[in-house]
Amino acid sequence: MEQFNWWVIVPVFAALIALRWRRTSMLTWFAAWWIGMFLVVRYGFTVPVPMSVVKLYMGLVTAALVAYVLTDAGRIREVTEPLAAFMTERRYLPYLAAVALFIPAAVAFGIYRDMTRVPQPPSFARTIHPATPAEPIDVHGTSYDLGTADNPYRELEETDPAAFKARVENGRKIYYENCFYCHGDVMAGDGMFAHALNPIPTNFQDPGTIAMLREAFLFWRIAKGGPGLPAEGGPWASAMPAWENFLSEDEMWNVILFLYEFTGHRPRAVELH
């Protein structure tokens, strides 16, 4: 709940609801909803929503509002009549002039702001989960076909819970000896090195990471690390080490067991027909 800025969301909705009880023109209503939604999307979240998504959402909001107005001839009139009056009637002339001046001024200001902004490195849409190599990979002399490989110890969960537990415990040790500096002590991707890294370490609690992946995918990423990322996984600046240089195959499979055990996620099963 602390992820939302309630002091933005509550007043906006209160105002919009209040608007229902007051007879306002359609035009005011349209503007109020548009601005209200913009405020909620832009400032309603503790972690700001990136502009690309704000634009997407506001596009949808605009489409919905337009659809609402255009569905009814009365509403169309309510919107167009004041606008037409504003542009044609004499008494609005000063305001019309003000608007006519405001628009180029706003454009000029926008340009000024763009030109004086502190330059930012270009953004790069990194593919978080690039496709695994189609050819089998080689780790410590064993060849793994990532399409079919699975965690060799996963079955212990049912056949021998005690042995499974031992392996998870081993994984815990490995994790806190090697991984938590980056991936964090509760696997939220916020270890003490995390702030210095770009891309930042993966947050395993997030349902969009290991919960969607097969164990073989994790094994590949852990063994080959950032250096093993394929072309589409660019900009290849990942600090994730290639753990095959430090850990045995067994240890890597064990730490994978621990990642799932700790987060409560389940790996994607190997689907074979």
Binding site: V47, I128, N203
Partner: peptide, 25 residues
């Protein structure tokens, strides 16, 4: 239509702590 990994500037990525937003993710 909410993207899983969002196109964002470096600043925005740092604020989000990754390319997925903590809520929208």
């Amino acid at each position: 239509a909410t993207p899983r990994s969002i196109i964002a500037t470096t600043e925005e990525v740092q604020a989000m702590g990754g390319s997925s937003h903590p809520v929208l993710g």
